[in-house]
Design a protein around this nucleic acid. Structure first.
Lengths: 342, 342
DNA sequence: TATTGTTGTGCAAGCGATTGCACGAAACTG
DNA sequence: CAGTTTCGTGCAATCGCTTGCACAACAATA
């Protein structure tokens, strides 16, 4: 049926072990034999059975990526495809493959991860999110299984390798930007408060207000889903207040689009009536109306670097954990404006 | 180190084979033994080594998904995440896992596929695209490896299982819709002419014009990349013509967004000056400005059904190939308008 | 009681690779 | 030229699981 290493061995008139060594390019095999074996491999169209190989040498040459439990929904957010692209790009160059773990519920994902890990399907895992009290992280730590996090781990966790932006600073900077434009009533719309990103950006936001002696009202802080509807709902809430904000920090472009459209439905014009600044700088932000001022967090690189760290960790497990901060850049477009008078 | 089937066997005081049968829930094992073994499994936290299992029983319980070669770029198109979600959703319910094949070049992807297939990493493959003269399809057919196509195969190929919309009809219907609105100068902006979707929709488009006795000019037919920039470039071309179109059929929402923004940059207002109708109905179309009239092709279902077909095919290889047509729906929003006068 | 059937388990041979070790041949040494 | 290295290859065990077949134990039958 399938052509195995034995077939090659017979054809090349050597032992299977020799074929194996040729594939591994073992220096102890003579060039002459190598050539002969390679020819046989070619002619037979032989490809090693990766399961057998994995079984024998205890490694799979593939890594798993774990989507947040809301994968079903959040996959709509361009953040994920892009970060996966980054991962995939590096992974590819190192001849690894990609396994995906998705699931409807947290429990399902957890099961999936356990199955991958204990089932030895992957050599390492990259988690596409970081949130508080995560069962999966606990598990991986316990099992001493190589993994990296995209986002900051909850505990100052010196022993977790992660890749992230400096979201605290970014949150602060963005807010300061709005303050400099003269805004004093600034709202914050973020994703789930369980996500580390949200927490970090929020505390940056708070810090900026504090430094500027502005009041921090809880009415101005919303936590919604990372999707457009999230943005819309938030707007509903905020613009019912007797003193609605004149500027909004939104932690995600997709939400920001929701904000934009909800706002213009309500008859507000942007940026004249309210300024909006958001995060991620996915392609959409460029073509929204008006184009969004957004923080480019370099999603691709986030993925790329995390994959790189992971592979390093897989190949040298005793290496110290390593944290990579990917820089961010505020991309100014047309959704923010100076606030005249008060 | 890791706990194997032997450890369980010892702990439960049975032979490894018995443990194996308990896991497979083989009826020949007594309930009493089963209980005992299950308890041991629980207590040891045993999970079977999937590589070993795959090796032994010649199946992996996972499927591969292949992105188009431009994955690097096209992943930005929300179509893909959504279709993957659909696949993943079904796959999950059947306890399969997902392997991803991506790559920068067609060659790289091809290699990846071969590696998966011969390496026995997956039991089947779903191709996320269909294009003419595809090497991968050839290969899979030749190897008699189970796969399904999302999109219509090139050859009338009665022996290929695929899931698709009736893109020919959709193309025609959409065009007729514009004709009914009074448009006589209708352009078509599509993706690569190698893609079957493009071909099908285009011929539907042509047919509609033909039926309405309208002229078909090649100047009105553009082929671009499935991205926003594609849309922009197309607009550049079309609106240099001495007689620019008053309505445009765009085969993808993302491109349509590009069209929209290019158009408004040029000072055209939509839908007053030019009507735009597009395909896919990704979330963006809803919040674009104006909201896009778009054909909902039910991407999720496309993925879901194809996964279903694939699993069926894996589990009953001799089943006749099966083609599923997922219905489409035109979602009217605000990017099309009646054309007054001539 | 001897014979035939069940039922539940275990033995051992795979699945297709990798790898430590042994070993014959060739090339070096003195 | 005998003795020691070096080089290239093969043997066989191993990775962890599945499964056909054999077989012991016990029940049912004659």
């Amino acid at each position: 049926m399938t052509v195995t290493i034995k077939d090659v061995a017979i054809k090349a008139n050597v032992a299977p072990s020799t074929v194996s060594r040729v594939i591994a390019n073992n220096p102890r095999i003579s060039e002459k034999t190598k050539k002969r074996v390679r020819k046989a491999i070619q002619e037979l169209g032989y490809h090693p059975n990766l399961n057998a190989r994995s079984l024998a040498n205890q490694m799979t040459n593939s890594v798993g990526i774990v989507m947040p439990e809301s994968a079903s929904k959040s996959f709509q957010n361009p953040f994920f495809p892009e970060v996966i692209r980054g991962i995939s790009s590096y992974i590819q160059s190192r001849e690894y493959s990609l396994f995906m773990v998705t699931g409807e519920t947290e429990e399902a994902i957890y099961e999936g991860v356990v199955k991958m890990v204990q089932g030895r399907r992957v050599d390492g895992i990259v988690l596409l999110y970081s949130r508080v009290d995560d069962k999966i992280i606990q598990y991986l730590i316990e099992k001493k299984f190589p993994f990296v996090l995209i986002g900051k781990p909850q505990q100052t966790a010196q022993d977790i390798t992660y890749t992230d932006n400096d979201n605290y600073s970014a949150g602060r900077e963005v807010t300061e930007y709005l303050i400099k434009l003269g805004h004093t009533h600034i709202a914050f719309i973020g994703g789930s408060p369980n996500l580390m990103v949200t927490k970090e950006r929020l505390s940056g936001f708070r810090e900026a207000l504090l430094m500027a002696d502005l009041q921090i009202s809880n009415d101005y802080i919303c936590h919604m889903e990372f999707l457009q509807e999230g943005g819309k709902e938030a707007v509903e809430q905020l613009f019912q207040l007797k003193q609605p904000p004149t500027a909004i920090v939104v932690t995600d472009d997709l939400m920001a689009l929701g904000v934009l459209s909800a706002l213009s439905e309500k008859g507000y014009s942007i940026p004249d009536d309210v300024s909006v600044i958001s995060f991620n700088n996915v392609i959409l932000s460029e073509i929204s109306n008006p184009p969004l001022t957004s923080v480019d967090v370099h999603i691709f690189q986030l993925g790329y670097e995390s994959a790189k760290s992971l592979v390093e960790k897989i190949e040298a497990p005793d290496l110290l954990p390593k944290n990579i901060l990917v820089p961010y850049t505020i991309i100014e477009r047309h959704s923010c404006m100076k606030q005249e008078g008060r």
